[in-house]
């Protein structure tokens, strides 16, 4: 009996997940349709690029530096067990560009941006601002949703690239200060084994994460149920769902990009 109820539970979770996925796909298709049939509000896009991308630089930068530094320490202590301390620079670089850079950037942006998009659009919905937009002959999808999604997709790779650089720099700082690396050696080692593919595959991931963040933020905002509680729920959902989807798609993308 217990087993049956467990299976039922799993089934119902699965069903919720599938219906969410279905609605998300419809939402994406609808956005595509609006993209081609409505105006593109370039000013809104630029403003979103600023508030989503530019204003996230400090938090992305700090995270990257500290992560790079910690990574250097960990790899050093692991590597020293079989006298392979010299791998620190290249492993830090590869670890950050391929994996930690995009994933951390994605998760931080899920918390910072997806939530604020959901809250902003959700509030506009419950205060009838979306209705007002519509009656002023302005389609909310074109005016609010599409610029935000685009800004996310464009911002994330740039932020990740900057995060990559700063992460490597964080490792470098620790490398030359506490781990007794020679500055030139560290840099040469970093560059020697780093391939272009490491960087761009990370940036592709980042763009996909940006898409996830933008879609889930706007989707949850638009589906806010009436009332202040609704906005709170939309915000939480956007963070939770975009984080889960980022981690899941990270695995799938890694498979797709790296198993060649």
């Amino acid at each position: 009996m217990i087993i049956v109820s467990y299976i039922q539970k799993i089934g119902s979770i699965f069903r919720v997940f599938l219906s969410l996925l279905g609605r998300l796909v419809l939402f994406i298709l609808f956005n595509l349709k609006r993209l081609f049939s409505g105006p593109f509000y370039f000013k809104n896009f630029i403003y979103q690029l600023f508030s989503i991308g530019f204003l996230s630089l400090p938090v992305i930068g700090l995270t990257a530096i500290f992560t790079g530094a910690a990574l250097a320490l960990q790899i050093f202590s692991g590597g020293s067990r079989f006298n392979a301390e010299s791998v620190v620079p290249s492993i830090v670089a590869i670890g950050i560009t391929r994996e930690l850079g995009p994933v951390l950037c994605g998760l931080i942006m899920a918390g910072r941006v997806s939530s604020s998009i959901a809250a902003e659009i959700g509030t506009m919905k419950v205060t009838e601002q979306l209705d007002a937009l519509y009656t002023l002959n302005t389609n909310p999808y074109n005016f609010l949703i599409i610029p935000r999604i685009f800004a996310c997709v464009i911002s994330l790779p740039f932020l990740t690239l900057i995060g990559d650089l700063l992460g490597i720099w964080g490792g470098y700082l620790i490398g030359i200060s506490t781990l007794d690396f020679n500055s030139t050696n560290y840099l040469v080692n970093t560059l020697q084994y780093l391939q272009f593919e490491d960087i761009y595959s990370g940036l592709i991931k980042a763009a996909v994460f940006g898409f996830i963040i933008g879609i889930l933020g706007t989707f949850n905002g638009l589906n806010t149920s009436i009332g202040a509680k609704g906005v709170g729920r939309a915000t939480t959902n956007s963070v939770v769902w975009s984080s889960i989807l980022i981690l899941a798609s990270n695995y799938l993308l890694t498979e797709a990009l790296f198993n060649k």
């Binding site: 506009m124 205060t127 009838e128 601002q129 209705d131 007002a132 937009l133 519509y134 009656t135 002023l136 002959n137």
Partner: peptide
């Protein structure tokens, strides 16, 4: 509808001003 929307003005209960 677009033509219709051009010719109407709506004043919402909560004002719905863009903040």
């Amino acid at each position: 509808r677009p033509e219709f929307l051009k010719q109407i003005g709506v004043c919402f209960q909560g004002n719905a001003l863009f903040d």
